[in-house]
Simulated assay, not measured.
Amino acid sequence: MGHHIDSPRAAGTTRRDVLGMAAVLLAGGALSAGAAAPESDEELDGSCATTYDAEFESALADGDAEFPETPEDDERGLAAAGPRRFTLPLRRRYRVTARYGVRGNWLAGHHTGIDLAVPRGTAVYAVGSGVVVLARWSGAYGNAVTVRMPDGHYAVYGHLSRIRVRKGARVRAGTRLGSSGSTGRATGPHLHLEIRARRHYGSDVSPYRYLARRGARLW
Rank of each mutant, 00 (worst) to 15 (best):
G20K: 15
A197G: 11
A216R: 09
D115Q: 04
R166E: 10
G77T: 04
D64Y: 06
A98M: 01
A81C: 01
A117F: 10
S40R: 14
G128I: 13
V102Y: 03
T97Y: 06
G82R: 05
S7L: 08
A140R: 14
E42V: 14
L78D: 02
G121H: 10
E39Y: 10
Y52F: 15
G202S: 04
S47I: 02
V24H: 14
G101M: 03
M149C: 05
D115M: 06
S47A: 15
T13A: 13
G12S: 11
V156W: 06
G152K: 11
L25C: 08
L78G: 00
A80E: 10
L177W: 06
R76T: 02
G178M: 09
H111V: 09
A123Q: 03
R148H: 09
H190V: 01
T70S: 15
V205T: 09
A61G: 05
G2N: 11
L160V: 10
G130W: 12
A117S: 15
H4K: 09
T70K: 04
W106Y: 14
R9D: 03
A117E: 03
V118Y: 07
R214P: 00
T146D: 05
D64R: 09
Y100D: 01
D17S: 12
T51V: 13
F56W: 15
G181E: 06
S7D: 05
V118P: 00
R185A: 00
N105A: 14
S161D: 08
G20P: 00
L134F: 14
L107M: 11
D151R: 10
S206P: 09
P38Y: 14
G29I: 04
G139W: 13
V171K: 05
R76N: 01
D115T: 07
T146K: 02
G29N: 13
P207Q: 05
R92N: 01
E42Y: 06
Y125I: 08
R172I: 02
W106K: 08
M149F: 06
T50D: 07
W219E: 05
H3F: 14
R85P: 00
V133S: 02
A37V: 15
L25S: 11
M149I: 10
G63R: 07
R76K: 08
S138R: 03
W219F: 06
A135Y: 10
